[in-house]
Design a protein around this nucleic acid. Sequence first.
DNA 1: CGGCATCCGGGCAGATACTG
DNA 2: CAGTATCTGCCCGGATGCCG
Lengths: 138, 138
Amino acid sequence: MSVEVTGDPAPTGYERSCEAAGDVDHGRAIRDVLDRVGDKWSLLVVATLRDERLRFSELQRHIPGISQRMLTLTVRQLERDGLITRTVYAEVPPRVEYELTDLGGTLITLAMALADWAIENHPHIEESRAAYDAAHQR
Amino acid sequence: MSVEVTGDPAPTGYERSCEAAGDVDHGRAIRDVLDRVGDKWSLLVVATLRDERLRFSELQRHIPGISQRMLTLTVRQLERDGLITRTVYAEVPPRVEYELTDLGGTLITLAMALADWAIENHPHIEESRAAYDAAHQR
DNA sequence: CGGCATCCGGGCAGATACTG
DNA sequence: CAGTATCTGCCCGGATGCCG
């Protein structure tokens, strides 16, 4: 039952690594989602849209550090993945609003769990880092 | 109550964005954890160490796509964060074993929840992507 | 065996300028 | 207002070679 290397473009073996991570062949799903979740801005955008639909500029104002380009790319990705919807109003000046889909809503739960873990364990991590740095500094 | 920009190296505003994401000032914690979780290999290494302690080469064999360099950097990070332990045995040839800490164990739960979400919703995402691509192709 | 140092190539992300 | 286009710099990550 050796792992067959298919003719995929440029796997770098990462997909196969996901599969070997413990579960079955859901590696691609995990990798896909991880790539999105791991994205610097995606979760932030989703979180920002949690309880209000916002237009582009509002979104950008709610997420101080993001550039216009990155916001554009991020919302495109999220829209493509069905996590948010993009609604264009034929007005002048043009208005575009973004809203979380149901699927995006379910992701919030995960994000919150992650955030909770982060908040709860961050002191521990910081402490560990300090200890490590103290031990390894020269 | 303007946000104080401390003398940090290169914030790029990302930290402040996390803070604005909805919660309080736990932004740094969330960002830290997100950076680690979003890391391509970290979760994979943690998952691989879930129920067995492994030495370096074993770890590398369990994660096909990872390079020696990346594995080294990843385990260093994880060790620094207190998620895994690194034990060196003074033998010839040298032996180094990595094991999950309790903190790392709690992260597994999160990772599994994330994996479950990924597996459950991936078809939906793929479907959405296909529809999006079909609608936007030229 | 388990690293670390070095080099280097590709892709990501910021800044800027232009458009519907 | 809400993008797109282009250019550029920089960091990530692979490959290689050497050490304890």
